[in-house]
Design a protein around this nucleic acid. Structure first.
Lengths: 196, 196
DNA sequence: CCTACCGATCGGTAGG
DNA sequence: CCTACCGATCGGTAGG
C-alpha cells in the first residue's frame, strides 16, 4: 500500500486536541481561552491558527469524533443474536469502554456540545437520538420477549444513560474498579435493582 | 407581628435571580453576559449593580439557596422510623420534588457550581457530600437489615444521583408524568431493575 | 511559528 | 436607574 495517504493528525494537531480536551473538561469550553490552550501546548496563541481554523472547530472535532467512537463500539455487537438482557449488557460494556478510554473527550461530548453552532448543533442532537435508539430497540425486544418488565422505554433509556454517563467523572485508571467491572456493576443495578 | 421585618427579596432582585436562573441554565454561566441579563430584566447593565454585588454573587445565591432546599426537604423525613426501602422512596420523592419545583435553579446547581470561586467552591463540595451521605446512610441501614443487596454503597449512591439529577432536563409541568409519578418510576427502576 | 495588533466585548465603577 | 466610560481580555488576522 505504499503511497496511500493515511489521514492522520500531525503531532502538533493531535497535541492541540489533547490539551483542548483536558482544558474544556476541566474549565468548560467558554471558560477556556485560546491563550490557555496555547500555553498548555507551548506556543503563542496566534500559532494555534496554523493548525486549526477556530476555537469551535476544536469542539466540533471532539464531539463528532466521540460520536464516531460510540457508534463504532455498538457496530461490533448490533447484529449478534442473543438474549436481550445479554445484549444490553454487551451494549453497556461497549458504551462504558468508550468513556473510560477517552474520559476527557467523553466529558466534553456530554457537557459542552450545547456550545456548537448550527447546523452542527442540530446534527449532534439527531445523532444522539439515533444512538439512544440502539439501546431503546434492545430494550423493546426484551419487553416483547417478556425478558424485561414493561416500563416506559423512553423513561428507562434516560435513566440508563444518566447512570452510564457519569462514569467519566468517576473512573480512575488506577482505581478500585476497572472498566469491565464498572460495566458489570452498572448492568447489575439497572437490571436487578437494589432490593434483596 | 406588625413591624417585624420579613427578610424578603425586593421585587427587582427576585426578578434578577429568576432571569439569571433561566439564562444560566440555557446558555451556561460563562456564556451569559451581564448585558444578556440586563436585557432580560429590562434595564441597563450598570443598573443591575444597585441590586447585586457581582455576577458570581448571583451564582452563589442560586447554588446555596438550592442546597438549602434540598436539605430542608430531607429534614422533614430524616427522623422517621420505617423500613429502609420505604424511607429511600420518601427521600427520592423529596429530592425529585425540589428539582421539579425549581427546574432552572436545579440545572444551575447541578452544572454551574464549578464556576464558584474559593472558598465557596469548597463549601459547596463539602455540602454536597454531606447531602449524599443522607442517602448513603439509608442504604447502609437497608443493607444491615438485609432489605438491600450488599453492593458498594458509594457506587450505588453515584448511580442513584445520576438517575435523579437528569429530572430537571426532562420534566415538563404539563407533561406525561407528574413529579410524584416520576419519583415512583425512578424508585421502581432503582430498587427492582428492568429484569422480569 | 512569531510579533504586532485588530475590533468587539467583557464585568464593573463613577457620578449623578 | 441612567449615561458615560474603564482596563482587561477575548477570538482571530496580517505579514513575515
Amino acid at each position: 500500500m505504499a503511497g496511500i495517504k493515511i489521514k492522520k493528525l500531525s503531532k502538533r494537531k493531535a497535541q492541540i486536541y489533547e490539551e483542548a480536551q483536558r482544558l474544556f473538561r476541566e474549565k468548560g469550553y467558554k471558560a477556556t481561552t485560546m491563550r490557555d490552550l496555547a500555553r498548555a501546548v507551548g506556543v503563542e496563541a496566534a500559532s494555534l491558527y496554523s493548525h486549526i481554523k477556530s476555537k469551535e472547530d476544536i469542539l466540533q472535532y471532539i464531539c463528532f469524533k466521540m460520536a464516531d467512537e460510540f457508534f463504532a463500539a455498538q457496530e461490533d455487537i448490533k447484529d449478534l443474536k442473543m438474549r436481550p438482557d445479554e445484549k444490553l449488557k454487551l451494549a453497556i460494556k461497549a458504551h462504558v469502554g468508550v468513556i473510560t478510554d477517552n474520559a476527557s473527550a467523553a466529558a466534553v461530548f456530554l457537557h459542552e456540545w450545547r456550545h456548537l453552532s448550527e447546523p452542527y448543533l442540530n446534527d449532534f442532537k439527531l445523532m444522539r437520538r439515533r444512538y439512544e435508539n440502539i439501546f431503546a430497540e434492545i430494550i423493546e425486544d426484551g419487553m416483547d420477549q417478556w425478558v424485561f418488565r414493561h416500563l416506559d422505554t423512553k423513561f428507562y433509556v434516560t435513566v440508563l444513560f444518566s447512570s452510564l454517563n457519569w462514569v467519566y467523572d468517576w473512573y480512575q485508571p488506577d482505581g478500585k474498579f476497572d472498566p469491565e467491572e464498572i460495566a458489570d456493576r452498572l448492568s447489575f443495578i439497572l437490571l436487578n435493582g437494589l432490593n434483596q
